[in-house]
Amino acid sequence: MHNQFTVNFWGVRGSIACPGSETVRYGGNTPCVEMRINGQRLIFDGGTGLRVLGQSMLSAMPVEAYMFFTHSHWDHIQGFPFFTPAFIKGNRFHIYGAIAPNGSDVEQRLNDQMLHPNFPVPLQVMGAELDFQSIEVGQPLQIDDITIENAPLNHPGEAIGYRVSWKDHAVAYVTDTEHFPDRLDENVLWLAREADVLIYDATYTDEEYHSPKTSKVGWGHSTWQEAVKIAKAAGVKKLVIFHHDPVHSDDFLDQVGEQVARVFPNSLMAWEGLSIQITTAATLPAAELEPESVVEATISASA
C-alpha cells in the first residue's frame, strides 16, 4: 500500500443499522470509512461497519491504525465494542476526537457506552494499546506526510468534518451536517475545496427534508441536491453520496443515484465494498468489487 491512496467503504448508512432484503446491495452498516495512504491506515468513524473492517484485519496482525471520530452519536460509535483487533495485545490504535459540548473527551464517551448496564465488558478489557487524543477544532495534525484538517459541522450536539491530504490529493469526509437555508456552509466548502473525492451526508432528498408532514429541518442532515451544490462550488472531482437513510431501499437509492448523475456526472452512491483508488494521474473510476473482494484486497495489501 505504499505510494497509494485508497478509500474503502465498510459502512454507509446513517442513524441505525438496517440489515434486510431491501438493503443488500448498498449495505445496512453504519458509518466506517478506511483510507490507506502510503502505508498508513486511517479509519473514520466507528459505526457497525467497523466490526466488518476489524474482521478483515485479523489475518494481518499486529496492526497499527489512526481512528478519527466525527462525533459520538450511536451510529458512529457502536461498532467500536465489536472491533476485534482492539482486544488483541500487540495492536496499536491512535484514537482522535473533539471535546463534546458537555466537556467529555473521546475516551470517556467510548468508555461510557461499554459500562453496565449497557454492555457486558468494559473498555479496559481491550488488550491493544489505545492512545486517546483530543483534537483541537480547526487545528491540523500530521501523520508522516499526511495532513488531516478538520472543521465544525452543523449538527445537533456538534460534529466535525475531515479533510485528508497527501501529495497533491485530498479526500473530504463530511458527515453529519445540515445545510443552511440561505447560503452554502463555508466550513464545508473549505473542507471540500478542489478535493479529489467529497464524501457527503445526503441522508434525505429535498422533498423529504421540506415535507410539510414529516419535516427533517433541524435533524442535522443534508440532501443530495445540497451535495451537488457544494461539489460544484468547491470544484470537487468526484462526489460520493453517503449516510443513507435507513428507510431508503436499494431501489430508492438507485433512483437517487440516477438523479445525482444527471446533474453531477462524476458521482457515486456509497455502498459497502466500494473502493476508490486515487492515483498521481487522476481519480480513477471506483473498483466495482463485492464486499468480500474488498476484504481480500485489504488483507492482501496488509500482509
Rank of each mutant, 00 (worst) to 15 (best):
G138F: 08
G49Q: 10
P181A: 13
K89F: 04
L239N: 03
A65L: 04
G47M: 03
Y209M: 11
K167Q: 14
Q78S: 14
L58C: 12
E64N: 10
A231C: 11
S300A: 06
Q55W: 02
N266K: 10
T205A: 08
H73N: 10
V295F: 15
P291S: 13
R25C: 02
L268H: 02
V228G: 14
G39N: 09
A234Y: 03
S104T: 11
V52H: 11
Q255Y: 08
G79F: 06
T203K: 05
E178V: 01
I16F: 11
V24N: 01
G11E: 03
Q124M: 10
L58E: 10
G39Y: 03
T298S: 08
T214L: 13
Y66E: 12
F119L: 00
T205K: 07
I230T: 04
V174S: 05
Q139R: 07
P285Q: 02
S211R: 07
I43Q: 02
E186R: 10
T23R: 14
H94F: 11
E22I: 03
Q108K: 13
E107Y: 08
R41G: 01
F252Q: 01
T84Y: 05
I135F: 00
I143N: 10
G220E: 13
S59K: 13
Q225K: 01
M35Y: 05
K232C: 08
L141M: 15
K213L: 14
A159Q: 07
L189R: 04
P265G: 06
N118P: 00
L50C: 00
R193Y: 11
Q78W: 04
A282W: 10
V260H: 09
H243Y: 01
F82C: 07
L58Y: 04
L58G: 06
A202I: 08
V295S: 08
E208Y: 03
K216M: 15
K229Q: 15
F80M: 14
L198M: 07
S249H: 05
E290V: 00
W166K: 03
V24H: 00
V24D: 04
G11W: 09
F264Q: 09
M35K: 01
W271M: 12
E149P: 02
P31A: 13
V295R: 09
S165E: 06
